[in-house]
Every structure is written in C-alpha cells, then in structure tokens.
C-alpha cells in the first residue's frame, strides 16, 4: 500500500499539473489528460499509431542494433589494444561533443530519405556512448585479477573471456541503457526533421492539423515505448549483475 502510494503520488501530481495547465490554458488548444487518452485510443483503434510505431521501431532496431554490434566490439578492442584506444577516443570525444543533429543534412544527402537514414542517425546518436562505455569497462579491469589469472596459466583468450569481459560488463550494460535513451532521441529528431514516416511524422502531422490531442497522445505513446524498452534493459542488467545486489 505504501509502495503503491509512493509510486502513484508523482504520477497523480503530474496529471493534476497537466489538468491545471489545460484549464488555464497555457496555450491554444492545450489538451487535457483525458482528451489525450481518448485521442490515444482513437489512434490505436485506427491502426495509425501501431503502423507508425512499426516503422519507427524498424529504424530503431536497425540503428541501435548496429550501434551495439559495432560499438561494443570496437570499445573492447580500444581497451585491449592501447594504440587503437588512444586514436579512436579522440574521434569519439568529437562525436560526443558535436551537436549530432547537425549531421542530419549530411546523412540525408548520403542516404536519401528512408528508413536507413533514420537508422544511421540513431546509430550516430547512440554508438559513441556504447563504445566509450565498453572502452571504459575494459580499462576498469583490476590488474590484480589479470595477475591472478596469469599465475594460473590463463591464455590470452581465457584472460579476455574470464576476466576482462565480466569486469567490463557493468559498464557495457550501463552504456546500452544510455545508448538506448540516445537512440530514442535520435529517432524522434530524425523523424521530426526527415519526416515522411514513423512516430515523428505523426507528431508533425497532428501539429500542422491543430490536432494537439493526437500530437500529445503520440508523444505520450513514444515515452511509453521508451520506458518499456529501458525497463526491459534494466531487468536484463539486474539479472546479469545479480552479484552486485549481494
């Protein structure tokens, strides 16, 4: 009961604030929470939202998947081979510091306007963080553990799989979580600017038609999707890092 209250209270406060904002209203045609829920139901019923989600998730899976498949091994390589790490981290630092959205025109120019270009932008948004965390994770490996394993005659392969990889795992997983948030950010930025598909397009279309309730519903839906994806990752993390809770 107490926990329910602790969890429900912030949500209730948020909804109350929202209701109040719609009452005032703080801007033209500002939808109430209830209007948003109705619009959400409508969008779900018509299939428009699911179709847009499918399109968006497609680029998300493509972009974020590529970011994991390339970012994690690259980060590990950077950590294990010092020379690679020294060179690559300069570029990664640049990529992280850069206003990534500025790359979008470049991406459009190279890939055109399609699902792939969204995926590329998602990749650019998330991969540097995933890579940097994997790199940091390897560098966090305690030298003493390496020494211990070497004393038992561990080969390079065993050192990597039995010491370096598990040492880096917490940071790798944290990097995936960070990367996923960045991937959603990249997704929305890409679709708002590139438009013709996905959730971003739905948001833009609703806005231009002054269907602000639908726009809000789409934004809320996007947040729910991101929340679910992050929760799944958090569960995975808790499972893999059971020893930490101990």
């Amino acid at each position: 009961m107490k926990r329910l209250l602790a969890r429900g209270a912030p949500l209730a406060a948020f909804l109350a604030l929202w209701q109040w904002a719609a009452w005032v209203p703080i801007s033209f045609n500002f939808p109430t929470p209830w209007q948003t829920v109705v619009a959400l139901a409508e969008l779900l019923g018509s299939g428009a939202l699911l179709q847009a989600s499918a399109t968006s998730l497609q680029s998300l899976v493509l972009g974020f998947g590529a970011a994991i498949l390339i970012g994690v091994p690259l980060g590990l390589l950077m950590g294990v081979v010092r020379g690679v790490g020294r060179v690559a981290r300069v570029y990664l630092d640049l990529l992280i510091a850069l206003p990534t959205a500025a790359l979008i025109p470049l991406v459009i120019l190279s890939f055109g306007i399609n699902v792939v270009s969204s995926a590329v932008i998602i990749f650019v948004f998330s991969a540097p963080f995933i890579t940097m965390n994997a790199y940091g994770g390897v560098r966090d490996t305690r030298p003493r553990l390496v020494e211990m394993a070497r004393a038992f005659g561990a080969s390079w392969g065993k050192l990597f799989t039995r010491i370096v990889l598990p040492s880096a795992l917490p940071m790798i997983l944290a990097g995936l979580r960070l990367g996923l948030s960045r991937a959603f950010l990249g997704l929305i930025v890409a679709e708002l600017l590139l438009s013709p598909f996905g959730l971003g397009k739905l948001i833009m279309n609703s806005r231009s038609m002054f269907e602000h309730d639908k726009m809000f519903a789409t934004v809320a839906w996007t947040l729910v999707l991101a929340g679910i994806a992050l929760a799944v990752l958090a569960r995975l993390e808790a499972r893999l890092l059971r020893w930490r809770a101990a």
Binding site: R142, R144, E147, M148, R150, A151, F152, A154, I163, W243
Partner: peptide, 20 residues
C-alpha cells in the same frame, strides 16, 4: 614463466572474482 603447476599464489587483497 607463469602458469607452472607447482606453485599457487595467495594475495593480500584476496583477488577474488566479484561476479563469481
């Protein structure tokens, strides 16, 4: 070289794998 089967090391900081 390391890995000889005759000797085992015991460390001041234990050098245990925290995940195991």
């Amino acid at each position: 070289g390391p890995g000889g089967r005759e000797a085992s090391l015991v460390f001041q900081d234990f050098a245990l794998l925290p995940w195991a």
